[in-house]
């Protein structure tokens, strides 16, 4: 099943269909991918401040705007990973080796 992106005022559009629509408008390649990613929620310093309380890092007020921009960029890059629908039978690659006697 393809991932569905909610457009304000429109029926749900799959990301693939969105990219097709953008291509029809002459917007393709990385620019289209970025536009697709921006459909999703934007971060804010306040969001990070709240999240900081969870991760217990206590970044200074001067750092949060820097982190916000970097993290926003990361999330736009990761969107394709987040959007990917993966079959239940696909497990994470193991990163440990059980040892016998």
């Amino acid at each position: 099943m393809e991932p569905v992106i909610e457009f304000p005022g429109a029926r749900g559009v799959s990301r693939r269909r969105l990219l097709q629509m953008l291509a029809a408008l002459g917007i393709a390649g990385p620019a289209a991918a970025q536009l697709g990613a921006q459909v999703h929620a934007q971060l804010s310093v306040e969001t990070l401040r709240s999240a900081d309380a969870i991760i217990d890092q206590h970044f200074g007020a001067d750092r949060l705007p820097i982190i916000e921009k970097a993290l926003q960029r990361n999330l736009e890059q990761f969107q394709a990973v987040r959007d990917l629908q993966i079959d239940d039978l696909i497990e994470p690659a193991p990163i440990f080796l059980a040892k016998g006697r």
Binding site: I66, I67, A70, L71, V81, I86, P92, I95
Partner: peptide, 24 residues
């Protein structure tokens, strides 16, 4: 510093999903 601080906010489910992409 920027990269490490941003990564501090990555979620466990993002990491695990990346590891499933690895299997793919």
């Amino acid at each position: 510093r920027e990269r490490l601080e941003a990564a501090s906010f990555y979620t466990a489910t993002d990491y695990i999903k990346a590891m499933r992409v690895r299997t793919i």
